[in-house]
């Protein structure tokens, strides 16, 4: 690691994303937010964010509109299940071209 003050053999880890690699590759279905239904996107106010609260991996942002980090989203579908207005739909990954990914 960077700090060599105590010699080379240290067994502590440095914090950082991607401990399990690019976990986005685990995903079979991709969550897509429909901004015409999403409460914060539609009302332009800080509200709802149920998806942000329940996302196990913290890949959804608490912003207007909420965004999803597809690099690490594991595709568990909890956000789609919990969204109170069904603004999140799960789309097959195969439907996206290589570029869109």
């Amino acid at each position: 690691m960077k700090d060599n003050k105590y010699g080379s053999m240290k067994s502590h880890s440095e914090p950082g994303p991607g401990d399990g690699g690019r976990t986005g590759s685990w995903r079979v279905v991709r969550p897509v937010i429909d901004n015409s239904k999403c409460i914060p996107a539609k009302s332009n106010k800080m509200s709802c964010f149920t998806c942000w609260l329940f996302c196990p991996d913290g890949v959804i942002t608490k912003t207007i509109p909420p965004t999803i980090d597809y690099e690490y989203c594991k595709g568990c579908e909890i956000c789609a299940e919990e969204c109170p207005v069904d603004a999140i739909t799960m789309v097959e990954e195969a439907d996206f071209t290589e570029e869109e990914k």
Binding site: P15, G16, P17, G18, D19, G20, G21, R22, T23, W26, R27, M46, S47, C48, F49, T50, W52, L53, P56, D57, G58, V59, K62, D69, E71, Y72, C73, K74, G75, C76, E77, I78
Partner: peptide
Amino acid sequence: ILNLPEEELVHPGNRACSGC
């Protein structure tokens, strides 16, 4: 939900199963 702190102390891309 609105006054819950936004700062994340857990990084994404960890080894937990999806939906954990």
